[in-house]
């Protein structure tokens, strides 16, 4: 399990990286390496060139822009979990990252790597779907913005060209009296989710005024449960008092398209989606923060 030979590049600027990608055919971008390196070791991918982003300055770190949080693509998962801005303004991110791999892999793994690898069961894409995050991609002709809704084209295929680089992600700030819930089911701690569900609820005057629900792992890309989100507006946040609003959302979740594979049937994924959406909503209703 040794990688096939490749030519290694370690640019120090994003422009240099983009130029390398434009020059070399069959190049792979190495970010945190927690998905690419196993594939290299197993020779599932045998690129001629590897472009390592780890020596590039300026594409890692978290910045509060007021109405959103700007996260550099090379920000490591560990640093997202330790960041004060994220803890205050998007606490669902560290909560969900707790489920991502193990602390040793989070020490290397990056948000950009996860979003570009786009494993259907990964937690970060599920969160970015929840937030309608906006991605900034740099190419030979400059930067462009992509909404996360437009990002996944197909199974593990993001909307990015071979000569483009994801440089940052912008997560909008919800504000108000918002609660979050993230639950997932995997067989063991740190495994990819079989199904994961994230929920954000904003409550004003004792009623839900805004809701977002996303489901990861069920289909080839994260699913936003927009019908359920709409239906929740106006409901009481407390499961005991909302006349089955969360259960209704769960039933909508049960009806999603879901994949099947050698291990798990689509029916089981749908069943899990229903369970987990209800639990994520209940969790969100329980941790309304009143200020964030």
């Amino acid at each position: 399990m040794k990688p096939a030979p490749f030519t290694y590049h370690d640019p120090t600027t994003a422009d240099e990286a983009v130029a390398l990608l434009a020059t070399h055919e069959d190049a792979k971008i190495l970010a945190g390496g927690q998905s690419l390196m196993p594939m290299l070791n197993m020779r599932f991918v045998v690129p001629d060139h590897v472009v390592d982003l780890n020596r590039i300055d300026g594409i890692a770190g978290v910045r509060d822009t007021g109405d959103s949080i700007e996260i550099g693509a090379m920000t490591r998962q560990r640093d997202l979990m330790r960041d004060g801005v994220i803890a205050a303004k998007a606490p669902i991110i560290p909560a969900a990252l707790h489920w991502v791999g193990h602390f040793q892999t989070r020490n290397r793994g990056t948000i950009g790597g996860s979003l570009c690898h786009l494993d259907p069961a990964a937690e970060l894409p599920c969160l970015m779907a929840l937030y309608d995050a906006e991605l900034t991609v740099q190419g030979p002709d400059g930067a462009r913005k992509v909404s996360f809704a437009e990002w996944p084209l197909a199974y593990m295929l993001p909307s990015i060209g071979p000569d483009e680089l994801l440089t940052s992600v912008s997560v909008p700030h919800w504000g108000g009296n918002t609660g979050h819930g993230f639950v997932e089911f995997s067989r063991r701690h740190g495994d990819f989710a079989i199904v994961a569900a994230g929920a954000l609820l904003t409550v004003e005057g004792g009623k839900i005024t805004r809701a977002a629900i996303s489901i990861g792992g069920a289909d080839v890309r994260p699913i936003r449960l927009t019908d359920a989100e709409t239906a929740l507006v106006g409901a009481a946040p407390d499961a005991a008092e909302n006349k089955g609003a969360f259960k209704a959302a769960a039933e909508i979740a049960r009806g999603i398209e879901a994949m099947s594979d050698a291990y798990v049937s689509s029916a089981y994924r749908q069943r899990l989606a229903a369970t987990l959406v209800e639990r994520a909503l209940s969790a969100a209703a329980k941790n309304l923060n009143g200020s964030a």
Partner: peptide, 28 residues
Amino acid sequence: LFERMIYDDQGQPLTMNYGEYLLPLASE
């Protein structure tokens, strides 16, 4: 509860890594 080596009906092994073949971990 965990360890299952799956083959397809052509005899191809499917659980070929430690993300798919589940060994017991300390957490469970």
